[in-house]
Design a protein around this nucleic acid. Structure first.
Lengths: 203, 203
DNA sequence: GGCTCACATTGACAGTGTCAAGTGCTCGGT
DNA sequence: ACCGAGCACTTGACACTGTCAATGTGAGCC
């Protein structure tokens, strides 16, 4: 079977990644399969294995791309605010916004049974780079000095908060309180983010 | 094939649930399968379908049991503290503790693609009951008055925080900061929980 | 021409969830 | 006492999955 698209064969790798992204975005993370990806790329079910060692390897590449994009989104958001507490809310909005815009991609980035990030250098590095954006913001806070041994406790607190908010929204756990539409979810997220900002500002 | 255990056949339902719990606890959530559950219960691969409509139905029952247990754990923790802020940390510890003690069970309870809780009345009700424990604690806080339209924003903030902390710990995202052992994770969780308590107390 | 080697393909295997039929046991009605 | 119905369960199929192994194919180089 010939590739249905007329791309040069060296592009197959990229084509497979795009097909994967498209597949999880439209059909959901759980219906990702190597065979479906191959089908969408117009190649045999084994062709992807010439470009990726296994299922986890292709997913790891998506994870790396996801963290890069998340980092860019957060960095962009920071360019538009300078008050220290407001900056915290700004990256929070970017974080939650990413999760709501790309739910499957976001879940993939945080499911260690799908991708063990520590075994994939690129994914690991991209995740770390995104984390550093948060660190820089918290360090700008009065209470956010870095501890001797690593990230300050406030960094982990803020991350936990933003991550939990994203996860619960994505899994529909706030539906009772805010409804199911994306618009309503964004509004609820903004209110909760503001509540957290107020806690930090007053402390 | 006869059941290998000599239970009366009416117990098969319970046997299947126990086998499921054991399976996910020891082998992980992703290696749960109806056929493996049947195998462990010593019955044919189709027997479970006489007690549960489908894969999701048996998982939904586990979700209900999980939320019941989580609620009990949180309620127990509250019996040992009366200061309003300390109570917040107490349920937080119970929440994270449950997650760390029963990682697969915890994940299952919050994965909407595995169990769409809103379609399973019992699971839904048990989740709601657990949530009410948190609500009662936040209402005891100075800043935690319930809004007109439902849960206060502070409830959702606290839940997001505790949930994100649990999730990130479980997925190993804090390993760089605290190591992989359960003991180290509990210690890290306690420190972060304390940081959040301080934020709330000072606000 | 002949070689090599990377890329693709085909075919298998064991595993999955679930549908469809068949088997045997229990129990209520007569 | 028997008989039919219903239930719990089994057996066997189906389409699907990830991945291993063997095969083919075509471009570049000697």
């Amino acid at each position: 079977m010939k590739p249905v698209s007329s791309k040069s064969s060296a592009d197959l790798r990229r084509t497979l990644l795009n097909a994967s992204l498209d597949l999880i975005a439209t059909e959901g993370l759980e219906s990702f399969s190597m065979r479906e990806v191959a089908r969408r790329a117009g190649v045999s079910h084994q062709a992807p294995y010439h470009h990726f060692q296994d299922r986890e390897a292709i997913l790891a590449e998506l994870v790396a791309e996801g963290f890069t994009r998340l980092r860019d989104d957060m960095a962009d958001a920071l360019r538009r605010s300078d008050d220290a507490s407001a900056r915290l809310t700004a990256i929070g909005k970017a974080y939650v916004g990413f999760a709501l815009d790309h739910p499957a991609h976001f879940k993939l980035m945080f499911r260690s049974e799908l991708v063990r990030a520590e075994r994939h250098d690129e994914a690991h590095a991209c995740a770390q780079a995104a984390f550093e954006v948060l660190v820089s913001v918290v360090e700008g806070l009065p209470a956010g000095k870095r501890r001797a041994g690593g990230a300050s406790s406030l960094v982990l607190t803020a991350w936990s908060f933003a991550h939990g908010l994203s996860t619960l929204l994505l899994e529909g756990k706030f539906d009772r309180h805010c409804g199911k539409t994306k618009r309503a979810r964004v509004a609820a997220a903004n209110e909760v983010l503001k509540t957290f900002e107020d806690l930090v500002r007053r402390a």
